Structures are given as structure tokens and as C-alpha cells.
Simulated assay, not measured.
Amino acid sequence: MTLLHESDKSFWHGFVDFYESFFENKKIEKIAEIGIFKGNSVRWLLERFPNSVIYGADILPIQKVWPIDKRFVFSQLDQGDRILVKNFFSQDFFDLIIEDGSHIPAHQVLALLEGVKRLNEGGLYILEDIHTSHKRYNVKTIGSIEYCSQQKGNALTVLLAIMHYKELGIVIDSSKAQMISEDSLFSKEEVIFLDQNLKSINFYRRAKLPQKCYACGSIDYNFSSLKCTCGVDVFADADSMTFVLEKR
């Protein structure tokens, strides 16, 4: 039985209902997910797509709390290692990729560029927790990686830029790609690659309070300050953002 209600995809971010609108009329049989945590997302995928094979990856070795299923194939990897990420995606071509790993902006960029190459036509790439690439993200360090307001342009800024021009019907030529890639983690050529390979870019930002606090589980907040009673922000500027990308 899935424990989706215990996944922050559901109770905190509210991502799952957004995803469902893209799953309709899609044949999803080959799935890759980077980032397993407690395994609840894998359980959800196994139940939601009963004819699928899920290739999972995490920096941790296999954990006892993870599901055991012949349709779940695990690889241990460091998401910052391009060769390991490329080898992981090279196991198959995918109908759905979910990137929910380290949330480090450079790692998000690396997985995006390698993952899109391995998507089938019409396949979906979900880039979760992209708010960690927002300049107002309130976590300054994760391990040795520093998040700060001076960080370069990243997957959030570049995808929003491509989405902007797509909505305006403007072709991203070399000069536009150069402008988008300026002071970012992407080269001009990588911007052009994404633009040429993505049929649609769909962005979600939670616009309501979460069902419960991820830190303490409370459903009661200090509503005047938009904080949980434990002090956690429940309506921060840089929280609960995700992309659903569809490949041409």
C-alpha cells in the first residue's frame, strides 16, 4: 500500500494533483527517479503505474525501509558525478523521469541535460523542488555546497526564460540563447538543446498552505506570520516549486 500521504510531494508541496493532469493518456512503462529518501515515492509509482519498471538512484545504499519489488531496480550514485548520472540514464529510454535528488542547483542542471537525452518522444521530465535554485531559498548550505543570493543562473532561471519566449511565440536563436545563458550554469548550446527538445514547459508553485508541517506534523499555524507553531515558514517565497517538461 502506498504511503503517499506521508510524502512531502503530497502533504507539503501539493505536487501530485498537478502531475496527474500530465499522466492522463500517457503510456508510462519505463520510469527513472533520482532521490529515494524513505521510498514513499517509489511505492506510489509502483502502485500508480502497475505495468512499469522503476529505475531508482540515490547517494545512499539500499535502505531497509525501501520497497522490495522486482519492478524496482536500484543504482547507487553521486548526482554530482556526470559519468555516473549518464550511465544511470543509459540503462533505458524513459517515459517518465523524476529528479528529486540532492536539490543542489548544479546537480539539477546536470541531471536535466543528461535525462532529457534519454526521454522518449512525448516523455515527461519532472524537476522537483526547483525552489532550491531560487535566490531567496533560505537554506544557505547543504554539506559543502553554498546556496546564496549570488549564485549563477540555473535550471529555474533558464527554464523560465525558455518558457517565456515559447509563450510569446519567439524563436530562441543564437543571440537569445547567449542572453539566457549569460552568468548561468548553462552554455549557449545547452540552452538551444533544451529549447529544441522540449515541447512544453509547465511550472507549478504552491498557492495555498500545506496540509501539515513537514518538521513537526502540526496542522495549526501562526497564521499572522505564516509560520508553523514550531517556527517553520509555511508560505515562503521560495518553496514548493516544480517543473513538468514534455519532450518533443
Rank of each mutant, 00 (worst) to 15 (best):
E99W: 08
Y19C: 06
V116S: 00
G231C: 03
L45E: 06
A106W: 05
S181D: 07
P50D: 09
Q178H: 10
F49N: 10
F49E: 06
I28M: 08
T132P: 00
I36R: 01
R118Q: 13
F72I: 07
L112Q: 03
I54L: 14
I31N: 02
E121S: 14
Y55F: 15
G14T: 06
N40V: 09
E99V: 08
R206W: 04
D220C: 14
E182R: 13
R82V: 10
V42Q: 12
D195N: 14
S41Y: 08
R43A: 11
R248L: 12
I170T: 13
D220T: 14
N138M: 15
K70C: 10
L159E: 00
G39Y: 02
H134M: 04
D195L: 01
K212Y: 08
I62V: 13
A238Y: 05
V65D: 14
A161M: 02
H131F: 07
S175Y: 12
V171A: 13
C216K: 10
Q211S: 11
R118Y: 13
V42G: 06
E6H: 12
E121D: 13
G80I: 03
K227A: 11
D95C: 10
F18W: 07
G153Q: 01
G101R: 01
I162V: 06
I162P: 00
V73A: 02
Y55V: 01
G14S: 00
I126E: 07
